[in-house]
Design a protein around this nucleic acid. Structure first.
Lengths: 337, 337
DNA sequence: CCGCAAGATGTGCTCGGTCATATGCCCCTC
DNA sequence: GAGGGGCATATGACCGAGCACATCTTGCGG
């Protein structure tokens, strides 16, 4: 008959087994130098014999450090957030931290506030907020004081440090590339209103057109989905004089390509298209998509770096770390005829 | 001057503020019935006045329930895992649980074992393993005993309950659809070796062909990436007599479409193509992709359901919950000429 | 008007670690 | 050979909640 109540072994059990005090066990576990080699060996042997695992919950209670970071994100099935979170998780784990995720279906200030509240109760050592919406942003203003935090893609007048990819520059690269190809002007399919990326990309696009003294067409409103791109593409195909389109992300660019193809418009011969993100699929669109590359993994890593610095050395200045975008030329753009 | 050491308020502070004992505060927090209404009100007021938040770490220590679930997953940037995890997270949070994620770069038994170890130390109440590889599977055999667990897409002789989408049936649907269109046989581009999905899809595909007495072509090895699909597509385009291709996922199907298009092969006129997953982009491929739909969100929900049942009512029988696949006919398939 | 049960509230211990401090020991130096 | 310093180890308090149980109220029936 096996022991009926198979309670997990605790430090005291190990101590008894090794014939030492629980404090010595603790020292072994935490690599304290002042433990005699043979004692250490005896303790370690007892640990493996009993299959002991330290209880991080108890440890967290007294150290007030859970070694867990919270992540609040919007729709983690989108490529951008998913990649960023992957980067965050990898970097966090390398640094010895766990990651606890809350992904919101819909973003509003209350949701974000609630999520941050849950995470606080749970005792996370810091939070990264991947919710690049204007509305989400307001919730950051009354973070539990003293809680280290970092935001992805935040606003300038930040109360917390921000890590972001230079959206404006990315949009400039895309637009300038199209103008350089000899296009008179560039149409733009935007992301959803309220998103900071949407605003940044519009800003960069508009700036380049204005600097070049070109007409600025009315942008078409999208929502990141291929369907929105498809609808926008149908409209654009029906319009006169459209020769270049800058789409705010790759998925919508796919929709645009589809719509143009259905209307018999050839890309890039009749119309050039540029996307934003460089998702793994873009290289294999028809035609392969010229696009702005975002290094999401780098963003994730930077977030953790900034966050850990805050945790270790106190509140940081509200810095702003900008990751430069890249540009990938493929076959969806060509000189204007 | 503000208080220099602004320690967070604890239950004792609230108790003092409200003129009751800490136990009464605890009762209010846990919605115990036996608290007089005015006492409750006084406590609640004290709570808001002090901005008190309960410390879940301390609570977890004594209740031995962290209300956190662990998730071990492989590459969370892939659409399938990402969607599944999203479903898991939503369902978990609805049930009042947090989700702690470990996403592995590479899968092997040791990695999974380590991840499960970390999660155990952290005191999760249960784990869901989204690592549908044969090698990962072995690590589940020596789970810390008594740890509730559930696996996504596991093997039959399971030691833990499994939630999965019927891969074999999905592949059958795809293959039968193509045979019904009058194609003599169907070529197959597989997922990476070692993945259970890969095996299931091969099994279903082969079974239908054999049942119909058709020749079974040598499958082409892929790895889920569009590039692999592209390479396979180039090979297939160069082969004689290929009229129907079943690709093990949509991303590879995209690569196949690209390769065929480059070689001047028309889809679906010359060759029909079917994918697997129904990612949001598939509808807008050129042509829109006929594919097998997987309801990842449902898988996530089921996982949590099974897991919570285990947590609440003890170890479950090693059940196996199968979510049926769907089939979406679009424009990438047509009758054989 | 008392007794008793149910309701309301308080007391003290516990969970499993870490921290501060005490204690015993050995060795070295003057 | 006494004193002191450093090392190895032990002891007890403590983190912030919940739980079991004790105690005090209250209401109601006889």
């Amino acid at each position: 008959m096996t022991t009926p109540k198979r309670r997990l072994p605790v430090m005291a059990d190990v101590a008894r087994e090794a014939g030492v005090s629980h404090q010595t066990v603790s020292r072994v576990l935490n690599d304290h130098p002042n433990v005699r080699a043979d004692t250490r060996a005896r303790v370690e042997e007892a640990i493996t014999r009993l299959g002991y695992r330290r209880n991080l919950v108890a440890r967290a209670l007294v150290t007030k450090r859970s070694r867990t970071l919270g992540v609040v994100s919007f729709d983690t099935t989108l490529y951008g957030p998913a990649s960023t979170i992957y980067g965050i998780e990898q970097a966090a784990r390398t640094a010895g931290y766990f990651v606890s995720i809350v992904s919101l279906k819909s973003i509003d200030s209350d949701n974000v506030r609630d999520a941050l509240g849950y995470l606080t109760e749970q005792g996370v050592d810091g939070v990264v907020v991947v919710a690049p919406q204007r509305s989400a942003w307001r919730a950051l203003e009354n973070l539990p004081s003293g809680m280290p935090a970092v935001a992805v893609e935040g606003m300038h007048n930040a109360c917390v440090p921000v890590v972001c990819i230079d959206q404006v520059e990315g949009a400039r690269l895309a637009t300038r590339h199209l103008l350089d190809q000899g296009h008179e002007t560039v149409w733009h399919v935007t992301g959803p209103a309220d998103w900071l990326e949407t605003e940044g990309r519009i800003t960069g696009w508009r700036a380049v057109l204005e600097e070049a003294g070109r007409p600025v067409p009315e942008p078409l409103a999208g929502d990141w989905s291929p369907r929105a791109g498809y609808e926008a593409g149908k409209s654009l195909a029906a319009m006169k004089g459209v020769t270049a389109i800058f789409t705010a992300n790759d998925q919508m660019a796919l929709g645009v390509l589809r719509a143009l193809s259905e209307k018999g418009v050839r890309v890039p011969d009749d119309i050039s298209v540029v996307g934003f993100d460089d998702i793994p699929e873009s290289e294999f669109f028809s035609p392969p998509l010229t696009t702005v590359r975002q290094d999401f993994a780098a963003v994730g890593r930077q977030c953790i770096e900034v966050l850990l610095r805050q945790i270790d050395t106190g509140p940081a200045t509200a810095e702003r770390l900008v990751v430069p975008p890249g540009f990938v030329v493929r076959s969806s753009t060509a000189p204007a005829r």
